[in-house]
Design a binder for these strands. Structure first.
Lengths: 390, 390
DNA sequence: ATTGGCACTCGAGGCGATCGAGTGCCAATA
DNA sequence: TATTGGCACTCGATCGCCTCGAGTGCCAAT
């Protein structure tokens, strides 16, 4: 594909993305001050169509990009706008201000992206299955109730309230707790099963049934930690885009989105997708991100190759998403723990913009998450005049 | 309003709710086998229109109910379908099966209602501000981290991870914890302020700054407990209703819904709305609910007068909701703790159906919530083959 | 008080003409 | 040989016009 074709393709995609209307040769020349006549452009467009990059809704209409056209655009023709320092500061602030739970950070990531992009955002909570258990404590609250606290390897703490048989006394519970810790400490969460944990039962002199009840609850607490949560925001914003003028189409898409676990599963798969596929897995454009942060990010250095993935139209292996594009990226907490961030929008999407946004949000979240999930700094005491959200 | 007018009004509302099209005199006679001619009906309809119960989109069209018409229908003409025993069992099951957190119960309530009604559901988590604090414990996890556990008066447990200065040792922390408990135990959550809690600082010999940090975190944990969460489900289902063919209208409504705190605030206000207003605040139709549950609900006896409220169209004091109807009801955990359940749909709503559903869901949640929030029974150990949701 | 009948209204839907932005192709041109 | 101007053609969108039918209001007859 020669240079001129590239320019024309880019121009067409840009225009189409903006207007959502098939673009014709004449208007293209005018809008972009091309130094060729519309006839020339017409010839080129005809060739581009033959090559599969463009399509026409009907004979006498302008051209619009095909999936392949978008793909070429995303792979080769994209320019990524830079994120301004103000924006960079704004998002960090947004993610952490008055933060009360680590989870909430994920939720806010989704919120921020949805608002910023005007598309739909999906953020998955981090996957802890690969992480190993440093400590597990079971602490009595009152007869019949206790709390299980897990500390995962990079200092991530999870806890869960459990019910226990009311007969169990504090010292017995502590005994059980120690036994559980002995038998689980250092194990990967994923490797812990009901069988593993039940070997802790021997330690106690209590009736086995009682002990098992506690072990079972502890087990659930552990499995709960592995559960991936899905945060979706901006669903209905899509309605504002012209491709959703057709309510039925919107409705079909929403039905597909309803199956959050499918979407989540798909996103996780994308993470493990091998490189070198025909999908855009581009190296982070350091140029676009380097000078933005306040200070150089240690994480950005660690993760040599933060990547985003773009799936366009038919490439998305989810029913009901054939008309959409899906951009995903993987954030990291420390080295091993990962989670996904995604944006879904119509194929006619502002790819450059969204990729910049999602990439930067990724970095911000990765930076900030470690502090809030793991053994980060103590938050400033902040003399009490924080606003409470309710 | 004489009997015949009532019958006609009811028939019109029923038809209009079903078809979403203005109903004419002739088709009304046919569909309902009325024993009057269409001319008579026409006269009656003209009078009903003059009285304000009906309106016409244009001169030669059929009639549709006005807000006032719906109001009369809801207040006087409604018949509440009974909930079948199967359904009753199904919902209890849905709410509690494999339940892992109390919160999730609220979420599921929203899910269930949305799915069942095909409208939008809003459920607020219970409001604990009125409740008093039985216990508060601060327990060390590792240097720099601790957990705050609150027990509220009917045995409701909340907890929150906090960061503490890494210098503080376990025994000092315990000391502080005891001091906090002494100074807060028995107080209403609402009455606890930063000032109240800071009086616990004297007890310790540690530097005041360190202690204050802990107290502040404990304070946040308490305030966190009071935070009301809003669960909304079925948002996009509304798109399937013909009144939302117009995407802009849908979009406007969704913009309004985006302000969840407004909606939540409005729902809470409705709870405190005095009786005797012009709004439907009807006594629970015991007839419709009595024979359904498996066993008589102790709560149903306690709460003499579970009520639902219906706001129609302009009655809703929220921007962008002028075309909707909003049905709310208050669930209870024990005597004092309350939360809200609501359904929002087009004015052309299946009032009878929805009111039955929401009322029953209310009862189911009230019944079940106490066990899961408070000192309920231990859940069955359930031999480990529960399905895990992820 | 009820009814049949009649003139009238108005939105929906089908038809045809017009308009305009687009295309493909070809012969002329630099 | 690549580019361009010109021309005939296509097709969706829009507008006006007509008809159809389900509705109404009103009046005189029962």
């Amino acid at each position: 594909m020669d240079e001129r074709k590239k320019i024309i393709l880019k121009a067409i995609v840009d225009d189409y993305v903006e207007t959502c209307e098939p673009v014709g040769s004449k208007s293209l020349v005018k809008r972009h001050n091309l130094k060729y006549s519309s006839a020339t452009i017409r010839n080129e467009m005809a060739e581009l169509e033959e090559m599969g990059y463009l399509e026409k809704p009907h004979t006498s209409a302008g051209r619009m990009p095909s999936d392949k056209g978008y793909r070429a655009y995303v792979d080769n023709l994209l320019s990524l706008p830079k994120i301004s320092p103000e924006e960079a500061a704004a998002i960090r602030n947004y993610l952490t201000e008055n933060l009360s739970e680590a989870k909430e950070m994920i939720e806010r990531t989704a919120e921020y992206l949805a608002e910023k992009t005007n598309y739909l955002s999906v953020v998955l909570s981090p996957q802890f299955s690969d992480t190993s258990l440093e400590q597990i404590k079971i602490m009595m609250i009152e007869p019949g109730r206790a709390i299980v606290v897990l500390v995962l390897s990079p200092g991530i703490v999870h806890d869960r309230l459990i019910r226990i048989p009311a007969l169990i006394e504090e010292k017995d519970l502590n005994e059980i707790g120690r036994a559980v810790e002995r038998c689980l400490a250092g194990k990967r969460l994923d490797d812990i099963t009901l069988v593993t944990i039940s070997s802790a039962a021997e330690a106690s002199e209590l009736p086995e049934a009682l002990v098992n009840q506690v072990l079972y609850e502890a087990y659930i607490a552990i499995k709960q930690t592995e559960k991936i949560e899905v945060y979706i925001d901006g669903k209905y914003q899509l309605l504002k885009h012209p491709e959703f003028r057709d309510v039925d189409r919107a409705s079909r898409f929403y039905d597909a989105m309803q199956q959050e676990h499918m979407v989540a599963g798909y996103m996780r798969e994308m993470e493990h997708e091998e490189e070198g596929k025909a999908f855009a897995e581009c190296e982070w454009d350091l140029d676009c991100l380097e000078k933005i942060g306040d200070e150089p990010s240690s994480l950005a250095v660690q993760q040599k190759k933060p990547a985003y993935m773009v799936r366009i139209g038919q490439e998305i292996a989810l029913n009901g998403m054939e008309d959409m594009s899906f951009i995903t990226t993987t954030y990291r907490i420390g080295q091993q723990i990962t989670g996904q961030i995604g944006v879904i929008g119509p194929k006619r999407m502002q790819y450059g913009n969204i990729i910049s946004q999602i990439s930067f949000v990724n970095r911000a979240l990765s930076d900030v998450a470690k502090d809030h999930y793991g053994r980060g700094e103590c938050p400033a005491p902040d003399d009490g005049n924080r606003k409470r959200r309710d």
